[in-house]
Amino acid sequence: MAGPEEEVIVDKVPFKEGIFRADRADADTGNGTLLGNKCASCGRIYFPPADFCFDCFGQAMAEAPLSQRGKLYSYTLCHMPASRFKPPFFVGLVDMPEGVRVFAPLKAAAGRPFHIGMDMEVKIEELWQEKDQQVIGYVFEPVK
């Protein structure tokens, strides 16, 4: 029960349901997982999850969590506002070992400037605030 001395807890809401999860046991690290899916017939993996396999038209799809790490395929520093982000902000494409390429905001790390091919790690964190809600999503950060 929230006592009167406690601050109002801001709700955390995902920017989109069902495509990622945060590691609750390890909340401080921001670690988490992107939730793809896999065609039971041909094995192709999709992120975001596909309703059916676009390759073989298989209808049976199984959950397929992606690896936490991938390699930076490309990146840019945006100087124009987009979505709810205030410039400048980094975005990039990360190639995951499962064969999918993920677009996401990138989190800069001191002393580790972005370069193509660098190892990146998925993090779950606040993207922006909306009303009294904290909107969370996935970003990638250079591996320490």
């Binding site: 495509i19 987009a82 979505s83 677009f103 999503g137």
Partner: peptide, 28 residues
């Protein structure tokens, strides 16, 4: 404005724009 993404466009929510795309293409 920049040409906006469609509603419910996943990448659009995450900051994708035409210039961002071509910035990434240029890096490659």
């Amino acid at each position: 404005k920049l040409i906006p993404p469609e509603k419910d466009d996943l990448d659009g929510y995450l900051g994708m724009t035409m210039p961002a795309m071509f910035g990434m293409v240029a890096r490659r």
